[in-house]
């Protein structure tokens, strides 16, 4: 465990809690893509099945349970408790365009052809693109609330910090997880455009709106 990994996990947790608090306090989930949140719930579900088969550490187990709870609570807020405020008309990304190729790819390119390992691979590939419905929604409406941009910033920062973690682990432990690294790079690239807007607009006190 290194400092990049810890900061990455904290950033990930912060992002999810920020989103939950935003929805809870405003009692409104307008501008949030329910489809992205469903994908994240699916990511955690398929990745953390090893909770039942493989004990890594208390930290690992506790974080996995918290991530799962946060993901499902967020989905419940959007499609259950505050569904009247859910902007489904702008959440129109076609999920099959992501799910079909990623399912195929996880069967083709994995570490071992076993159900748990294929599901883990599926979750890594899916996570790299799970934010696309959210980014698509923002490009469609042309704006995002500032709190939503903070959420996206920490979510992107998490995977960028994991890149630093992998470089560190490669040099100190000779650890190298090709599937996670390649997907992590792809995932981080999707946030670059957003990072630019976040720094040039949101951090200068302006609302994120697209021309």
């Amino acid at each position: 465990m290194n400092v990049f990994r810890i900061l990455g996990d904290v950033s990930h947790l912060l992002a999810m809690i920020l989103l939950l608090l935003k929805i809870w306090r405003s009692k409104c989930c307008t501008g949030i893509s329910g489809k992205s949140q469903i994908l994240f719930a699916l990511v955690f579900t398929t990745r953390y099945l090893d909770l039942f088969t493989n004990f890594v550490s208390l930290y690992n187990t506790v974080m996995k349970v918290i991530f799962l709870l946060c993901a499902y609570l967020t989905v419940y807020m959007i499609y259950g408790k505050f569904r009247k405020t859910f902007d489904s008309e702008n959440d129109t990304f076609r999920l099959e365009f992501l799910l079909v190729p990623i399912t195929g790819l996880s069967f083709l390119e994995n570490y071992s052809f076993t159900p748990l390992e294929i599901l883990w691979t599926f979750s890594i590939y899916l996570e790299s693109v799970a934010i696309l419905p959210q980014l698509f929604m923002i490009s469609k409406t042309g704006e995002a609330e500032t709190i939503t941009t903070h959420y996206l910033f920490f979510l992107g920062l998490y995977r960028a910090l994991y890149l630093a973690n992998w470089i560190w682990r490669y040099h100190t432990e000779n650890f190298y997880d090709q599937i996670a690294v390649v997907s992590g790079v792809v995932q981080t690239i999707f946030y670059c455009d957003f990072f630019y807007l976040y720094v040039t607009k949101v951090l200068k006190g302006k609302k994120l709106s697209l021309p």
Binding site: D9, R47, D50, V56, N60, F67, E117, F175, Y176
Partner: peptide, 10 residues
């Protein structure tokens, strides 16, 4: 890395 040992990252 021993893949059989499982994945230790989140």
């Amino acid at each position: 890395k021993d893949q059989e040992a499982g994945h230790d990252e989140l």
